[in-house]
C-alpha cells in the first residue's frame, strides 16, 4: 500500500493567530515543543487526538490544519 504523506498548515496558522510561538502551542495542546517542531517539519504525523486538539486551538476544521500530500514510495 502506498504511504500517505500527512502535511500540515500548523506553521502558517500559528502566524495567523497573533504569531503564536511553538512553545505556546505546545503548552495549549499538552505536548513538548519538540513535537510541534516535528509536526511542522513533517517528521511526525500526530495522533488523531492531538490533531483535533491542534485544530481546536486554531478554531479550524481538521482538514484545514492537516491534509494529505503527494504519495511517497510503496511500503
Amino acid at each position: 500500500m502506498d504511504k500517505l504523506l500527512i502535511r500540515s498548515n500548523v506553521r502558517k496558522l500559528r502566524f495567523e493567530h497573533h504569531e503564536m510561538t511553538q512553545q505556546q502551542l505546545a503548552e495549549k495542546v499538552g505536548v513538548t515543543r519538540q513535537t510541534i517542531v516535528a509536526i511542522e517539519k513533517e517528521k511526525y504525523s500526530p495522533s488523531l487526538e492531538l490533531a483535533f486538539r491542534i485544530a481546536l486551538v486554531f478554531n479550524s476544521p481538521l482538514e484545514e490544519v492537516f491534509f494529505i500530500g503527494k504519495k511517497e514510495a510503496s511500503i
Binding site: 499538552g30 505536548v31 513538548t32 515543543r33 519538540q34 513535537t35 516535528a38 511526525y44 500526530p46 495522533s47 492531538l50
Partner: peptide, 9 residues
C-alpha cells in the same frame, strides 16, 4: 527541560 514525555517521546 520538559518535565513529561508526550506521545512522540
Amino acid at each position: 527541560e520538559p518535565s513529561f514525555s508526550d506521545e512522540l517521546d
